[in-house]
Simulated scan of single mutants.
Amino acid sequence: MAALARDGWEVTAASRGGGRDASWPGEVRAVRLDREDGRALAGVVGEGCDVLVDVVAYDAAHARQLLALAGRIGSVVVVSSVSVYEDARGRGFDTQTEPDGFPGYPVPIPETQRTVAAGEATYSTRKIALERELLTAGDRLPATVLRAGAVHGPFCRSPRELYFVKRNLDRRGRRVLAYGGGSRFHPASVHNIAELVRLAAARPGARVLNACDGEAPTVAAIAAAVDAVMGVTNETVLVEGAPPAPGVGETPWSVPYPVVADMTAAERELGYRPVVGYAESLPETVAWIERRLAGGDWREAFPKMVRAYGDLFDYAAEDAWWPGT
């Protein structure tokens, strides 16, 4: 919001709660909106707008809502996900729990990489349905689709950094990392995604672009970076291969093969340069997670993390596994 306002846009922020962040410039207008209500969306658009940014569009029905307003919108910027990609064997995020089901993507993954079939069955199939519905109507409504990686930053409802932050707050002292700590799941800072939105708003077009940070650190490097922010030192036990036991060594970034997005198209088409590095962005993320955790249960603070990952903090399982204990 702030970046768009600084560029001279008149910005309206629509959300279910209708709230605003204290960091937003005063001229940013905040309104309440139920994204599922097409009539309400049309009401917010009013007589028209130059750009509509949609970070909560999930399927073809949402795309059709936007297309119904094509005559009143100059262009749209819509956030999708790298989860739409599949490898040469047809494996993707939807097959990762199957035996040998994790995809072996090229490193890095270009936007031309094959994708899953469109449908309504999963998050990934719905996202690609959203993309295709929009892009086939690019002559009526120019759409920039941003395929985000592992999103991180304040206000994220499923902050992967919670995995290391809570362990440090609980003074665990040591941790297990599967796959030798070398897993790479390309992060995407909210600030870098915002920069891509800012650039795409100024250059309308029908395109798909990866939306990630400038670097894709290993999970071991992420753990060390969180430790540095929190001023703690931990023993790290590296395990080659898969997690050695249920609840042991598997983090929200733990993948057997790297998931790294190619960012050269965004650099070429939009002039994108990351505005923040991963380690540089961590202090505000860690501070926000600590505030959310203060005096409460992590499950209540981050229910989406529970739904996505289950019990991230099975300390009994870890203690039973520790070598030499």
Rank of each mutant, 00 (worst) to 15 (best):
G324I: 00
L169I: 11
W288N: 02
R64K: 04
S83H: 13
D87L: 15
A63N: 02
R132G: 06
A22I: 07
S183D: 03
R273G: 05
W322R: 07
G180T: 13
G101W: 05
E27Y: 04
T264G: 01
R72P: 06
L177I: 15
V259A: 14
V237P: 07
A202N: 02
W322G: 00
R174F: 13
G46N: 14
V259P: 10
A261S: 10
A68S: 13
V53L: 14
G296I: 06
T122Y: 09
Y58N: 06
R16Q: 11
G48V: 09
A13G: 08
E284Q: 11
L162S: 05
G138A: 13
A40S: 14
A287D: 11
P258T: 15
G101F: 06
R307P: 00
A220I: 01
R147G: 13
P106T: 03
A150V: 13
V239Y: 07
A287T: 08
G310F: 00
K304P: 01
L169W: 07
F164A: 08
G74V: 00
G249N: 14
V107W: 06
V208Q: 00
A245I: 14
Y105K: 10
E250C: 11
R157Q: 05
D213F: 08
V45C: 14
G214S: 12
A316W: 07
D314P: 01
E215W: 05
A137C: 13
A88M: 02
T264E: 09
V116H: 00
G18P: 15
I109Q: 04
D227A: 01
Y105S: 09
P323F: 05
H191L: 10
L270K: 04
R72W: 09
F185S: 12
G38L: 08
E133D: 02
V84Q: 12
L199I: 15
G296R: 09
D7W: 09
D21M: 04
V255I: 13
A279H: 02
P252A: 02
E300R: 06
F93W: 14
R147W: 10
I222Q: 00
